[in-house]
Amino acid sequence: MTHFRYTLLGRLLADPMAVVAIVIISGLVLAAIFADVIAPHDFRAMNMADRFAPPSWHYWLGTDNLGRDTFSRLLQGGRIALYVAMTAVSISALIGLVLGMLAGFGPRWLDNTLLFFFDTLRAYPTIILALALAALLPRGLSTVIIVVVVTSFSEYGRVVRTQTLSLKNAEFILAERAMGASFGRIVFHHILPNVLGPFFILAAMNLPVVITIEAGMSFLGIGVPPGTPSWGATLKDGFDFIRTTPWIILSGGLPLILVTLGFTFLGEALRDQLDPKLRKGR
């Protein structure tokens, strides 16, 4: 039995950066799950009498220009951020994994075609592609997810392809074939586990990117529909009143910074632990 200290979680807990990340992310997850329970007010309820109320016991983080409780909206924003990040990353990662392995294993022409496809998508700046897609598709979270998937699956594809290609010719794969392993066994049993390390690290590193893309699109007004309490939308709402009521923009910006940092720390801690070349001692 491996001692807890030597398991992945145990090693992560020994890394202060990872602990900070885990605390932030658990906070986000808890806030997202229990948003309706924790929230002191209905995040949609407008109270014109209390517009621009400063933080107080009643409104923990004040209210916005329509008299909505900023703290309740912050919690809902966490839910949206987490939802978009999880869905978009899993969809694009899965597509990238499948296409990447196809490119790595397939014949030369398939590899070249897929690579050309990946490069074409990568060549577009995310925000330009987002604007173009947003013009074509109805406004909403699903559009945000589609934009993220379209712009990021090629990254997974490339990483997985490169890994697969180098593994395909690795001596231990030749050794496995020499031991009579079947094609399926080699792909799922020997190549896949070797690909997954860098793949998960990339996914963890991509979570904060996705959250900022969503916030960015919402800030530009091409993300979530008006009235949705996304952090990006809160930033946009608060931007106009930044001099008089800074708590609005802060309650959109601060959680965004914290969560982005949290996921980035986690991604880096994971990379340090999963990549044996970077690991300091066992």
Partner: peptide, 24 residues
């Protein structure tokens, strides 16, 4: 051939650093 490999004939490769799957 797949039946023969590993069962009737097997190989020891040159470099033991690369001939074993590192994650299994």
């Amino acid at each position: 051939l797949r039946d023969l490999r590993g069962q009737d004939m097997s190989v020891v490769f040159q470099d033991p650093m690369t001939s074993l799957n590192p994650v299994i």
